[in-house]
Design a protein around this nucleic acid. Structure first.
Lengths: 144, 144
DNA sequence: GTCAATCTCTAGTAAATTGATAGAGAATCC
DNA sequence: GGATTCTCTATCAATTTACTAGAGATTGAC
């Protein structure tokens, strides 16, 4: 009932890439620094996200990572499930037969749906938009 | 984003106790057998649930465990949080200051609310009720 | 073509967590 | 007093988590 640190790092890294609208690659070192993520650990995570088709990369000077798809087509759920695995193990969702039934598969399905209604409906475009709005509000308050 | 086996055992054990409307204690061995839970492991879990005020117990012959409160006043969330800890670590829910803000505390709060809308609103009385209804339906289908 | 920068891949690893087990001790009832 | 059952502390193997090390492969600049 919790997200791993790795999953959180993955979300922060993708968010960092989604914030830049340009397609030019951002270096691992830069993401690591800005999001305070151990660099070597982040390398593994980014590589895994690339293998999942979420990110693209380029090597060499001016290399780095970038979104492989538009930010509004990548959801928080996509990233979390790719990094941390399924939110609920399949066997918990299966209805038992008459002999061995229990109320729990139905419960886990409800939990799954509730969770999904948030994580699968929040794209990184949404996150960036909300973040910019909040940011604007705070700056205004500061000015008063 | 998952529940431990221990948490699942705890739910099954409390459900087992909630199914009996009588207040007479049920032995650990019986619960372990009926719910297929390793007995020694279950002992720890039941003891922890007793310390949390959810269960009561009696020793000796005719001893066992029983609900300390009515089944409609114990929720799935109560048990899960007592056994597995908070569903989202507090630090993830905290809003950062202007200098270091991010869209994630808001996200985690939404996740938390979505989860809560299921687990904190499902009591063991609900589970027993639904289970009995389902059971009745299945038996009817068998008879046809 | 070589050099520097950067991603990529395979290992390894210390610490924590998970899912248990063992066994002595304490209460309850006959 | 003895049988039964819960209670408490300790221990443990396996797995997972969070992270590090280092050699290798690309890329672009010169």
């Amino acid at each position: 009932m919790d997200v791993s640190v790795k999953g959180e790092y993955a979300l922060r890294a993708v968010f960092e890439l989604a914030c830049r609208d340009s397609d030019e690659p951002i270096k691992i070192a830069k993401i690591a620094e800005r999001q305070r993520i151990p660099q070597k650990f982040l390398e593994l995570i980014l590589s895994q996200l690339r293998q999942g088709g979420f990110l693209g990369s380029r090597r060499g000077t001016d290399g780095g990572y970038f979104l492989a798809r538009p930010a509004d087509s990548i959801t928080v759920g996509d990233i979390l499930r790719h990094i941390d695995g399924p939110t609920t193990p399949a066997r918990r969702l299966e209805q038992g037969d008459v002999a061995n039934d229990s109320p729990f598969p139905e419960l886990w399905q409800k939990v799954e749906r509730a969770l999904s209604s948030v994580i699968d409906r929040t794209s990184f475009a949404d996150l960036v938009m909300r973040w910019k709005e909040n940011r604007a509000r705070k700056v205004v308050n500061w000015d008063i």
